[in-house]
Amino acid sequence: MSRTTLDLWVGVFVVIGIAALFFLALRVGNFAGVDLSETYTVKARFDNIGGLKVRAPVKSAGVVVGRVDSIVFDTHTYRAEVEFTIATRYEFPRDTIASILTSGLLGEQYIGLDAGVDFDMLGDGDLVQMTQSAVVLEKLIGQFMFDRAGAAND
């Protein structure tokens, strides 16, 4: 087989292969999603993170703006310290509230950011002061039963 025919078929092969990669990237995956090449890191402490996992999304108004980097237990405050990165192009005021939310009734958990009104913006390494813990279903039910019991006794 002559070299030009060979080159042609190998060219076809490479084009198909790269097309397959593009198909995976654009149609199957969320390549068009958040660009996390330039980020800054923010910390937040929660009383209870529920089922939050590393790499879980960080969303604001439903848009993914970052990802959870690490989750450690802080022995001084006895709270969970969560570090997450946010794409540099999204800036949030200092008084932003971070809460742990669940997508759907039994879906994965994520961090939701509710922007505050401060003029100062969060920078790299800053701590989000106001947090809201995950809703733990057992506690919720327990509280509900307790309230009902209290109401019945009155």
Binding site: A20, L21, V28
Partner: peptide, 15 residues
């Protein structure tokens, strides 16, 4: 060089 392309083609066809 061929393997990643073949794997990508396999996955794409699978989807």
């Amino acid at each position: 060089l061929s393997m990643p392309l073949l794997a990508a083609i396999f996955s794409a066809m699978g989807v």
